[in-house]
């Protein structure tokens, strides 16, 4: 890790003025600094800023510095948010990592993390090592010929399903952005991952009220039982009346360059009976437009299976 200047402002205004890289839980920043992937000269520790609190009055408002473990344990949080958080990382990391920082965590692509290897996201124009390399963990949706790295967050998946918004604060003032619009696909500029402006900070995560999301879940499929990123995950919520699906929310993780809401699957579920056949027919749509790589073709099947499993576990309470 390289030497840096540390400031610990107490107010948002002061934080804006530092021009430093923001440090919250440090679970991404410190990790990547150790690997020399990030080499900030100035670091602004924002933990003293008043960005705490979980308000469940109308929908959900979560201060950006709330720790993952605190959010997961809050009784007013929709089940799929809570489950996604609890299936992330380890207890120690969840105790440190903030909800805002979680949404900004960098990809786990091994080439991004190894400074000796070409990576367009870390070193624009240097090339993508994953396309012809080890890409089993990589994306089948939302990728480009410049980058195929998956977005690593679990909780971002239910949050896009719930159409969450972010409050942002920068030198030019405050604004609100839908999380789905916040992330940018890699395209020609994989180094640009979101619409945050220089010096701008996430201050709050807002989840619009959706009462039927009380019936929701998150399923994560991975290579070991804990402390591992998703090969594929699915957040699902259903609004059911008389055995018929009135509305649905479905998003998937581990398979795309951003948390990936599947509006087509949601539409296909609407009006259908709560039944395995409906789930399978709707999940098949998740395979549309997928672009598998040399080692991750199985994800095309896995993403459909994971959605069906999540819907079955939600409706039948299948065993875990």
């Amino acid at each position: 890790m390289r030497p840096f200047e540390l400031s610990t402002p107490a107010t948002l205004e002061a934080a804006m003025d530092t021009g430093g890289t923001f440090l919250a839980g440090g679970t991404t920043l410190v990790d990547l600094m150790k690997l020399d992937v990030l080499t900030p000269r100035r670091i602004t520790d924002i933990n003293a800023l008043p960005l705490y609190g979980i308000d469940t009055g109308d929908g959900l408002r979560i201060g950006a510095l709330e720790r993952m473990s605190e959010v997961a344990a809050h009784p007013g949080v929709y089940p799929m948010i809570s489950r996604a958080l609890l299936l992330s990382a380890s207890q120690q990391l969840r105790n440190m990592a903030s909800i805002g920082g979680n949404l900004l965590q960098r990809t786990r692509c091994g080439y991004f993390r190894d400074v000796t290897m070409p990576c367009n996201k870390r070193d624009p124009g240097s090339g993508c090592s994953a396309i012809g390399g080890a890409n089993r963990m990589h994306a089948i949706l939302g990728s480009s010929r410049h980058c195929v790295a998956t977005h690593a967050s679990d909780v971002a998946v239910p949050l896009v399903a719930l159409d969450a918004q972010l409050r942002l604060r920068g030198a030019e003032g405050e604004r609100t952005v839908r999380l789905a619009d916040f992330y940018r696909l890699p395209g020609d500029t994989p180094e640009v991952e979101n619409v945050l402006r220089q010096g701008e900070l996430i201050t709050e995560v807002i989840v619009p009220r959706l009462d039927w999301a009380a019936w929701s879940t998150y399923v994560k499929v991975r290579d070991r039982q804990s402390y591992e990123f998703a090969l594929c995950s699915a957040a699902v919520a259903l609004d059911v009346a008389g055995g018929v699906i009135v509305d649905a929310r479905v998003a998937v993780g581990g398979v795309a360059t951003a948390p990936w809401r599947l509006a087509g699957v949601e539409a296909a579920l609407r009006g259908e009976p709560v039944a395995r056949a409906s789930f399978e027919a709707a999940a098949a749509i998740a395979g549309h437009g997928t672009e598998p790589l040399s080692q991750n073709g199985f994800k095309v099947s896995l993403v459909k299976r994971t959605i069906v499993r999540a819907l079955l576990e939600l409706t039948e309470g299948g065993s875990r």
């Binding site: 091994g110 993390r113 390399g133 080890a134 290579d223 070991r224 039982q225 804990s226 402390y227 591992e228």
Partner: peptide
């Protein structure tokens, strides 16, 4: 080695 760290070279955790 594409997975030369303990994030990529998996060993079981307690839950396994």
């Amino acid at each position: 080695f594409a997975n030369a760290d303990l994030a990529g070279y998996l060993v079981p955790v307690n839950a396994d």
